[in-house]
Write a protein that binds this DNA or RNA. Structure first.
Lengths: 140, 140
DNA sequence: TATTGTTATACTCTATAACTATA
DNA sequence: TATAGTTATAGAGTATAACAATA
């Protein structure tokens, strides 16, 4: 680790390392589910019930609308989501997750919610402290 | 946040949210530097001085060797790194960062080391605790 | 006029398989 | 035979600009 005495900087470096270490796990899950990484990200953002406008999904994925068209095309081709015209504004298309999509998404959420080994190995006391600090950081 | 009483699970969800929130900052930095995201990642992994074998870089980027060929092609075309045959094994090519690359990488490191707003806003006490907990988690 | 989503285009990233040059 | 890197190929993600439908 680069030498610094700022605890926030050091925490940030460690956090980055932790997320890097988790990457293979995420990639393996995507492959197992038969989804490309971005498709997996997108599926997680389409909760059962509410219809998500395409542009809203683009915002959450930090990419362009034109990009979402292709991602949703592929999810739709796999029968995981459906495009549906919005009632209030016929320019808008909302995304609704299908039953198949809901099942797959549930499994994804279950697997992704499992903390990676470094976190799972923390003492109860550390885990609680970590959760509380992050809650304060994110103001939730 | 999904309802759970496991502090490690909740910490993990918060961590994920924190990293998601940081994504636009990373993308903006990459764009500002004139590098595609993977090129930026790769450049960070090539420290001045030591020659990194291509396959080693592939491992760190969690992608295939054939993939690294293109990424390094583009970094080399921009004069940021150089391929150099390894002495001990002439099949291996090591990557050496150029002076231009070193300058750009230094600026990237400076910018990336700045903690994102949620972390920067923590109290000194919380920041220290967070650093210490993550150090224990990652065993460093 | 402005906005949503699509299309066209060009480029980057990705893995697999076949190839080369070494070992 | 085995390994490091390249090439060829095909698919996926990316942004920009032009477009159609709607507001």
């Amino acid at each position: 680790m680069a030498p610094t005495d700022d605890p926030a900087v050091e925490a940030w470096q460690l956090l980055w390392r932790l997320m890097q270490a988790n990457k293979p796990r995420f990639m393996a899950l995507a492959q197992e589910m038969g989804l490309a990484p971005m498709q997996l990200h997108a599926l997680r953002l389409i909760e059962p019930g509410d219809g998500v406008p395409m542009s809203s999904l683009a915002g959450k994925l930090f990419c362009d609308n034109s990009n979402v068209t292709g991602i949703v095309d592929r999810l739709e081709a796999q029968g995981l989501v459906q495009r549906r015209p919005a009632e209030h504004d016929r320019r808008v298309k909302t995304l609704v997750i299908t039953d198949t999509g809901t099942k797959l998404r549930g499994e994804v959420e279950r697997r992704m919610s499992v903390p990676p080994p470094p976190l799972a190995g923390l003492s109860e006391e550390d885990a609680v402290a970590l959760r509380d600090i992050l809650s304060r950081a994110l103001d939730v």
